[in-house]
Protein backbone atom coordinates (compact mmCIF):
# COMPACT_ATOMS: atom_id res chain seq x y z
CA UNK A 1 0.00 0.00 0.00
CA UNK A 2 2.66 2.47 0.93
CA UNK A 3 6.16 2.66 -0.33
CA UNK A 4 7.36 1.02 2.82
CA UNK A 5 6.25 -2.30 1.49
CA UNK A 6 8.67 -2.08 -1.43
CA UNK A 7 11.31 -4.25 0.16
CA UNK A 8 9.03 -7.12 0.85
CA UNK A 9 7.23 -7.47 -2.43
CA UNK A 10 8.18 -9.84 -5.09
CA UNK A 11 6.72 -8.26 -8.18
CA UNK A 12 7.98 -5.10 -9.74
CA UNK A 13 6.53 -2.96 -12.44
CA UNK A 14 9.46 -1.76 -14.51
CA UNK A 15 9.90 1.34 -16.64
CA UNK A 16 12.53 3.19 -18.56
CA UNK A 17 13.97 6.64 -18.16
CA UNK A 18 16.68 7.18 -20.73
CA UNK A 19 19.14 4.34 -20.15
CA UNK A 20 17.87 3.60 -16.69
CA UNK A 21 15.67 0.63 -15.91
CA UNK A 22 13.65 1.36 -12.81
CA UNK A 23 11.07 -0.56 -10.86
CA UNK A 24 8.36 0.00 -8.32
CA UNK A 25 6.41 -2.58 -6.42
CA UNK A 26 3.25 -3.56 -8.27
CA UNK A 27 1.38 -3.03 -5.03
CA UNK A 28 2.11 0.69 -5.26
CA UNK A 29 0.80 1.00 -8.79
CA UNK A 30 -2.84 1.90 -9.20
CA UNK A 31 -2.79 1.73 -12.97
CA UNK A 32 -0.80 2.61 -16.06
CA UNK A 33 -2.35 4.94 -18.62
CA UNK A 34 -1.33 6.73 -21.78
CA UNK A 35 -0.71 10.43 -21.94
CA UNK A 36 -3.73 12.43 -20.95
CA UNK A 37 -4.94 15.95 -21.39
CA UNK A 38 -3.03 17.89 -18.86
CA UNK A 39 -3.66 21.20 -17.16
CA UNK A 40 -0.41 22.98 -16.37
CA UNK A 41 -0.02 24.51 -12.92
CA UNK A 42 1.68 27.89 -13.15
CA UNK A 43 4.20 28.58 -10.38
CA UNK A 44 4.38 24.91 -9.44
CA UNK A 45 7.75 23.16 -9.18
CA UNK A 46 9.18 22.32 -12.59
CA UNK A 47 8.77 18.63 -11.97
CA UNK A 48 5.00 19.06 -11.94
CA UNK A 49 3.84 18.69 -15.52
CA UNK A 50 0.20 19.29 -14.75
CA UNK A 51 -3.04 17.93 -13.44
CA UNK A 52 -4.94 15.04 -15.00
CA UNK A 53 -8.56 14.04 -14.56
CA UNK A 54 -8.61 10.34 -13.91
CA UNK A 55 -12.27 9.41 -13.60
CA UNK A 56 -13.02 12.31 -11.34
CA UNK A 57 -9.85 12.00 -9.36
CA UNK A 58 -7.37 14.81 -9.84
CA UNK A 59 -3.90 13.39 -10.32
CA UNK A 60 -0.68 15.39 -10.17
CA UNK A 61 1.61 14.36 -13.00
CA UNK A 62 5.33 14.44 -12.21
CA UNK A 63 8.00 14.46 -14.90
CA UNK A 64 10.43 11.74 -13.82
CA UNK A 65 12.98 12.79 -16.42
CA UNK A 66 13.19 16.15 -14.69
CA UNK A 67 13.14 14.54 -11.28
CA UNK A 68 16.14 12.43 -12.27
CA UNK A 69 17.71 15.50 -13.86
CA UNK A 70 18.08 13.74 -17.19
CA UNK A 71 18.84 15.77 -20.25
CA UNK A 72 16.23 16.17 -22.93
CA UNK A 73 12.52 15.61 -23.03
CA UNK A 74 10.52 12.48 -23.57
CA UNK A 75 11.38 10.73 -26.85
CA UNK A 76 7.67 10.06 -27.45
CA UNK A 77 4.49 10.82 -25.50
CA UNK A 78 5.27 9.61 -22.00
CA UNK A 79 3.39 6.91 -20.09
CA UNK A 80 1.64 7.63 -16.77
CA UNK A 81 2.20 5.30 -13.87
CA UNK A 82 -0.54 6.24 -11.43
CA UNK A 83 0.40 5.82 -7.80
CA UNK A 84 -2.21 6.06 -5.09
CA UNK A 85 -0.90 7.86 -2.06
CA UNK A 86 -2.52 8.81 1.19
CA UNK A 87 -2.96 12.43 0.25
CA UNK A 88 -4.09 11.93 -3.32
CA UNK A 89 -2.83 10.26 -6.43
CA UNK A 90 0.24 11.14 -8.43
CA UNK A 91 1.24 10.05 -11.87
CA UNK A 92 4.85 9.38 -12.78
CA UNK A 93 5.62 10.33 -16.35
CA UNK A 94 8.18 7.91 -17.79
CA UNK A 95 9.63 7.05 -21.21
CA UNK A 96 8.21 3.61 -21.51
CA UNK A 97 6.74 0.78 -19.48
CA UNK A 98 8.67 -2.48 -19.18
CA UNK A 99 7.62 -5.91 -17.99
CA UNK A 100 6.43 -6.89 -14.58
CA UNK A 101 9.28 -8.91 -13.10
CA UNK A 102 9.29 -11.23 -10.14
CA UNK A 103 12.32 -10.93 -7.97
CA UNK A 104 13.68 -12.87 -5.08
CA UNK A 105 14.03 -10.35 -2.26
CA UNK A 106 17.32 -12.04 -1.37
CA UNK A 107 19.01 -10.46 -4.37
CA UNK A 108 18.24 -6.95 -3.20
CA UNK A 109 21.37 -4.83 -2.85
CA UNK A 110 22.15 -1.35 -1.64
CA UNK A 111 22.58 1.28 -4.35
CA UNK A 112 26.09 0.94 -5.81
CA UNK A 113 28.63 3.69 -5.24
CA UNK A 114 28.71 4.34 -8.96
CA UNK A 115 25.21 5.78 -8.94
CA UNK A 116 25.44 9.51 -8.97
CA UNK A 117 23.52 12.68 -8.35
CA UNK A 118 19.75 12.75 -8.24
CA UNK A 119 19.58 9.07 -9.10
CA UNK A 120 21.34 8.10 -5.91
CA UNK A 121 18.80 9.88 -3.73
CA UNK A 122 15.83 8.45 -5.56
CA UNK A 123 16.76 4.78 -5.46
CA UNK A 124 16.48 2.50 -2.46
CA UNK A 125 18.44 -0.36 -3.92
CA UNK A 126 19.14 -2.49 -6.95
CA UNK A 127 18.37 -5.94 -8.26
CA UNK A 128 20.77 -7.63 -10.60
CA UNK A 129 18.76 -8.98 -13.49
CA UNK A 130 20.19 -11.26 -16.15
CA UNK A 131 21.09 -8.53 -18.59
CA UNK A 132 20.61 -5.39 -16.67
CA UNK A 133 20.42 -3.67 -13.36
CA UNK A 134 16.99 -2.82 -11.98
CA UNK A 135 16.91 0.27 -9.79
CA UNK A 136 14.19 0.29 -7.18
CA UNK A 137 12.55 3.71 -7.05
CA UNK A 138 12.20 5.41 -3.69
CA UNK A 139 8.60 6.50 -4.17
CA UNK A 140 8.50 8.80 -1.19
CA UNK A 141 11.59 10.64 -2.36
CA UNK A 142 10.53 10.70 -5.99
CA UNK A 143 7.20 12.28 -5.21
CA UNK A 144 8.50 14.66 -2.55
CA UNK A 145 8.83 17.83 -4.55
CA UNK A 146 6.78 20.22 -2.48
CA UNK A 147 9.78 21.79 -0.78
CA UNK A 148 11.04 23.23 -4.03
CA UNK A 149 7.69 24.85 -4.68
CA UNK A 150 7.47 28.54 -5.32
CA UNK A 151 6.68 30.45 -2.16
Amino acid sequence: MSSKSTRNSQQYCTFYLGDLLLGISVEDVQEVIKTQDMTPVPLAPGVVTGLVNLRGQIVTALDMRKRFQLNGGFPKPPMNIVISQEDGAVSLLVDEIGDVVSIDPESFEAPPETLEGACRELVTGVFKLEHSLLLVLDLAAATAVEEVAAA
Binding site: D37, M38, T39, V41, P42, L43, A44, P45, V47, V48, G50, L51, V52, N53, G56, I58, V59, T60, L62, D87, G88, A89, V90, T143, V145, E146, A149, A150, A151
Partner: peptide
Amino acid sequence: LGRQVKAVTTFSGATIMGDGKVAL
Protein backbone atom coordinates in the same frame (compact mmCIF):
# COMPACT_ATOMS: atom_id res chain seq x y z
CA LEU B 1 -4.55 19.87 -4.78
CA GLY B 2 -1.88 17.27 -4.29
CA ARG B 3 0.93 18.08 -1.91
CA GLN B 4 3.35 18.72 -4.76
CA VAL B 5 1.38 21.81 -5.73
CA LYS B 6 -0.14 22.79 -2.41
CA ALA B 7 2.54 25.36 -1.78
CA VAL B 8 1.40 27.39 -4.78
CA THR B 9 -0.51 30.16 -3.05
CA THR B 10 -2.36 31.37 -6.11
CA PHE B 11 -4.56 28.28 -6.26
CA SER B 12 -6.84 26.86 -3.63
CA GLY B 13 -7.90 23.71 -5.45
CA ALA B 14 -8.93 22.30 -8.76
CA THR B 15 -12.13 21.26 -10.43
CA ILE B 16 -13.24 19.28 -13.44
CA MET B 17 -14.90 21.14 -16.26
CA GLY B 18 -17.73 19.95 -18.47
CA ASP B 19 -15.32 18.66 -21.09
CA GLY B 20 -13.43 16.58 -18.55
CA LYS B 21 -10.39 18.81 -18.31
CA VAL B 22 -9.03 20.05 -15.06
CA ALA B 23 -9.23 23.76 -14.22
CA LEU B 24 -7.43 25.41 -11.35
